[in-house]
Design a protein around this nucleic acid. Sequence first.
DNA 1: CAGGTCATCGCTCAAATGAGCAGGAGGTGT
DNA 2: ACACCTCCTGCTCATTTGAGCGATGACCTG
Lengths: 316, 316
Amino acid sequence: MADQVGGPAQVVLTASVARRYYLDGRSKVEIAEEFGLSRFKVARLIDAARDSGLVRIEIRHQGVIDVELSAHVQDRFGLQHAIIVDTPDDHAESLRQHLGRAAAELLSEVITPRDVLGLAWARSVSAMAKTLPRLPGIPVIQLTGALSLPNDDDSSVDAVRDVARASGGRAYLFYAPFTVPDATTARALRQQPEVARAFDQLGLVTKAVVGVGLWECGQSTLYDAAEERDRRALRHLGVCADISGVFVSADGETVKTDLAERMIGITAEQLRAIPEVIAIPYGTAKAPAVRAALRSGLVSGLVTHTALAHALLDNG
Amino acid sequence: MADQVGGPAQVVLTASVARRYYLDGRSKVEIAEEFGLSRFKVARLIDAARDSGLVRIEIRHQGVIDVELSAHVQDRFGLQHAIIVDTPDDHAESLRQHLGRAAAELLSEVITPRDVLGLAWARSVSAMAKTLPRLPGIPVIQLTGALSLPNDDDSSVDAVRDVARASGGRAYLFYAPFTVPDATTARALRQQPEVARAFDQLGLVTKAVVGVGLWECGQSTLYDAAEERDRRALRHLGVCADISGVFVSADGETVKTDLAERMIGITAEQLRAIPEVIAIPYGTAKAPAVRAALRSGLVSGLVTHTALAHALLDNG
DNA sequence: CAGGTCATCGCTCAAATGAGCAGGAGGTGT
DNA sequence: ACACCTCCTGCTCATTTGAGCGATGACCTG
């Protein structure tokens, strides 16, 4: 890698040849004729130019996406897509907006007119829905009920409606809570025409966007909304992450729970049947949950920020 | 050139492919197999990566040589060699040393065991001789007499002796002034055994190093040493530059002068017969003289500094 | 919904390129 | 001086790559 090109005349010649080749896009044969050299000599000069560092090639992106890190994460976890946004993560709201925008761009890029889109309830999914510019006219299916949050004007329904409006396709939405006190109520709700109609479409969903929660206080809206009994029960069952209501252990196994019977939402089997599931997690604290989600194989796409990506790689 | 790569997934894919291709040196076919693409797709991604600026290729040299400028000058004036040294030009002595070092490197690079080297009298040639590391055992011929300079311990003879010592070859040197008062004395001096022996070799010289002076006060040691009559006479003859005693007009024509008969040195014809003549001019004021010298075709190699190179190109 | 327009894709064929090899020049040690 | 050694050069042949083409599909418009 040290400058081993030779004397100054050699350096100048090498630089000229390298310029013609890399910057002007000439072929080595052309260059050989121009300089009166053999094409082999030209090839060796160019090799020397690269080895010596006289030619420097760098790949970088001036946008907010860290392409190297994205590729690394994608490769490391065998994902179909990984978008790592280089953004400060001190403010949750702005972070969510940035990730939402990136996810919206990703979605509008990968969606085709033949797709059927599923949306789970999550604040990051809502953020995405708001910045989504325009989609082909595809059906949009609501995957889960909604949890009402204090200081929050979004709901799962809004996201589905927003996206369906952007696409011009049909919206399968319903108004129902994510969790109810008992299994009977849940069954009854699932019989509701709107809910049933949406859930009938679940098998057709080809792409979905979900959130990921860590089964700890403040790291999952589902956890925060649950009763203490359920929190403990699931923790004892080894639940580490919830993927929009589907529970997963630290080693990536799905976990069957009683709570599931009291929920209005997609099941683990149905989620696994979706070819592409994009998650939009944020916050380094969630790293164990994201790791579990990635291990489970339920998630095939990831949109997140650099800090969480590094956390994933450091101990992944 | 604007980012026209597509969405974020595309950007990440393109970056990965570009990395594999440019940084890891994989073939496009390999990359295509690895990513499950056609090799055409890979090629188009790589093209897009270059066009969009995602891949940036730059050619630069961390040494003192400005390779781009050197190549430009070499091309512009059709030179065999051009070495432009990027060095501050406020101090003549340090400038001379830098150019001398560069010229020494150039010379030791281009000289072969079959060459016969000619050295003219010039301070820059002396500077070169001092830093010359080692050469093949070749003959070294003194091309001109010497001018004694105040505050200067060098002479043409020293340079020839230094270089001959570095090469281990034979030195054809003599002790004579560059100019004498009358033609008769000059003829007599040329009959001197040492001088005659050196001049007999002139036809064999294959490479020479010379200085270039501008025919103005302070820009040519020959001018400064000349009498006022000669200064004016040559100016009226249109002399612009002196190339180690060979006079050239601004449009590059050699100029016959009376002064030439009173000089001990190489003639225009003899100089032209030398396949490679390297000049080491410095100081932006000399730009017109250097231009004249390059136009004359007598000089085929140039070692100088960035400021003079820019001056040459600006109005060349 | 039909037809036009545009971009994208993968193909063919010829040119460009790389890996490895043999010959030769220059340098070196005995 | 001689043999040896190493570096450099240009070659052959197989692989890689690029230019241009037709087909496909998405989007636009009437």
